[in-house]
Design a protein around this nucleic acid. Sequence first.
DNA 1: TTATTTAATACCGATCTCGTATTAAATGTG
DNA 2: CACATTTAATACGAGATCGGTATTAAATAA
Lengths: 292, 292
Amino acid sequence: MEMHQLRYFVAVAEELHFGRAAERENISQPPLSFQIKKLEQELNVQLFKRTKRKVELTEAGALLLPQARTILADVQSAKDTASLARRGEIGRVRIGFVHSASLGYLPQLLEPFRAEFPRVEIHLDEMTVTEQLVALKKKQIDIGVLRPPIADPELTSFNVVEENFVLVVPKTHPLAGTPSVELSSLAHEHFVFYPEHRSPAFFAQLTKMCQLAGFSPKISVQANTMYTAIGLVGTGAGIGFIPESVACITLPSVSFVKLSGTDNIAKLDLVYSETGLSKSAAQVVEFARNLL
Amino acid sequence: MEMHQLRYFVAVAEELHFGRAAERENISQPPLSFQIKKLEQELNVQLFKRTKRKVELTEAGALLLPQARTILADVQSAKDTASLARRGEIGRVRIGFVHSASLGYLPQLLEPFRAEFPRVEIHLDEMTVTEQLVALKKKQIDIGVLRPPIADPELTSFNVVEENFVLVVPKTHPLAGTPSVELSSLAHEHFVFYPEHRSPAFFAQLTKMCQLAGFSPKISVQANTMYTAIGLVGTGAGIGFIPESVACITLPSVSFVKLSGTDNIAKLDLVYSETGLSKSAAQVVEFARNLL
DNA sequence: TTATTTAATACCGATCTCGTATTAAATGTG
DNA sequence: CACATTTAATACGAGATCGGTATTAAATAA
């Protein structure tokens, strides 16, 4: 049972006329008659009752017709799928991201992307920067969203978000309610920090930021996520830094204070490996680039 | 996109090895490679990532695989359908029947038939004898179940049920409760009869039966169905005849009495036209014949 | 009876598929 | 590091298949 035989069968079944069906299929009538006969021989059943004057479907033909149509439609749909896949408009993209990207950048990127590419399945995994770099190498994720800088020469990256840090303080702290504060005035404070092993570069950035302001931060406790950091600040464990976009999480026990001064910028980069990047992942990358 | 290309594609996708896939499809490796390449060219997308050492599906290939399997399975199912249709084990059979056959004969025939041929769709239409004969000619039904005799030489028929008539009388009638009665003793009674136009032969049979017993029946009212006849007897409109199998319908207001004497046989015939009988209808006819 | 319509048949040429032989490249081994 | 082995791709030729043209046979209509 060949594809063209099914096409021819459907054409004859719909036209009920070999000549017109042949015309519709852009072949001449004799080979069409031949192919129908061949199909009938293979199935060992008469599909059409034909007199010299009239063609009609047999019971078997009528049963076969909808199935033939389904098969041809499925073939078309398979072709469409291939076409979408070629353009990266269908597929699966696995994205790793640091927890702090989930509030600001990720929705900003993915909401419009999903609207334009509804058939691209996005698989999200919250991971540390370190984990993301490993997963990118192992091809376990296609794209990482993390805090720069990254050193690996095999990975491509570009900056997608730049925002200021803000200070989180307990409601009971003298700074609570202050519009802004100089970083250098915080030398005596105790800090809720982030563990070095999860994001060495981010840790280094924060430390260097403090040192440029003239002090070494006294770390009272380390929090795995910024959400817990805010919580810990609320319990009086110290004060902390978070990127502005995370400050949309408010607790009754904490206040946010602007940091004045330069070089207190929290960056977010999109990272991927050029080699073996899937078409749909490339679409996400391109989309992110155009968003800038 | 040809059928064999889909088969080859699925084989390679499952084996992930051109040599083994070729063996499985009973062709040699070069033409298989060629067909896959051709398919990729038509779809304009790479389906496999192949090094000289390893074959794996691309994203597009992985998306195509389930669809290809579906298509191949549907083709197989279409072949199965054709095979069943050839043997008359699938299809639609339209059966016309007189109302009085619905209680006794029809379930007796159709219940075991449906068990053996579950994919044959049975379409039932309650019709008068006259209507059935017309519908058979017009090919509106495939088979009729009616009360003989029939005269048409183009129709084939055989007897499927022979049963005695019983007498229906009101509970208040002197005969109520009597075990049996001679037909000839009913000359003075009024009868609930059946209209001649619905089944001329049946009407004639009943009339002749009475005349052989020595009287002409006095008809008080005519009932379209035997069910209404029983009801009318219950209201005191007269007494009536029904085939034994219909006597399973009881009303508190009526009694049934056996008729003694010969030639009071109600017959039911199965009728069909040999010409243009569908395979599945032929299966029903054969099944009915074997049931005897 | 004749003209017309329509599917089937006969035959030929072009294309396609498949097989054999061979090549090229990657991996594993002595 | 050279060599054997594995595996997919390439080259080419034989046979099958498909489709085209010309024609035939049969059924209907005039």
